[in-house]
Design a binder for these strands. Structure first.
Lengths: 111, 111
DNA sequence: TAAACACTGAAGCATTTACTTAACTATTGC
DNA sequence: GCAATAGTTAAGTAAATGCTTCAGTGTTTA
């Protein structure tokens, strides 16, 4: 579920926008309401709600409404999935470099 | 340079597209030419070049041309930067949860 | 030297994105 | 109950994205 390409699309796409990254950054310091998320952003509340809906659809943020205020939280599982995708590719590359280095060292010995 | 928001925009945006992620995935297994990158993708070579240019602009991929073939490689530093941004936010959130847990445990003791 | 190869670049086009404004629906406080 | 608060929804728009095709440019190879 977390490794399905469509979900990764949504997550990376969500993170590609500076306003949405700013929202995630704010949420990493604790839960916040929609208005609190909107406060530092130079755009209408409506625009913020649209960004928030994207973040929620991507799984990066979870929200719940109590009375008239919607409280938003980070969903660390989704962050971990994005992190993991990048990490696997980077490690694959680095392991390859290591093997290449060993191979070169060995063939040097053999001359 | 690696933490500048514009660069992060480019990196996450680059990773948001499934074709580009597939290209990164391919490159994580070793260098490839443009045609080799294009081969599994259901689109014109020209489209692949456009994706590749984005990947290069984002810093995720480095390329060099020898004769008529452009060889592409992963740039692990950039991958690490994206990874790092996510990781910091996730850890901030998880540390916050830990502190909250400790606080709750302590106040329970005190009753 | 001619043909095949490996790209490259520009133009065009349909779709998606990131907003805006305006009208609306619930809650909450007085 | 009435006003203020907190958020939602719809419609519209300008710009960006992800392609396409077509017409190139160098570089090998026969």
């Amino acid at each position: 579920m977390l490794h399905d390409p469509a979900q990764l699309d949504l997550m990376f796409q969500a993170l590609a926008d500076p306003a949405r990254r700013q929202m995630v950054d704010r949420l990493s310091r604790g839960p916040a309401s929609v208005s609190q998320l909107a406060e530092p952003l130079a755009m209408s509340l409506s625009a913020v709600v649209q960004h928030l809906n994207l973040l929620e659809a991507s799984g990066l943020v979870r929200t719940q409404k109590l009375g008239r205020v919607r409280t938003c939280q980070i969903e660390p599982t989704a962050l971990r999935a994005a992190e993991h995708w990048i990490n696997e590719r980077r490690l694959a590359w680095e392991r390859r470099l290591d093997r290449l280095g060993e191979f070169l060292a060995e063939t040097k010995d053999e001359t």
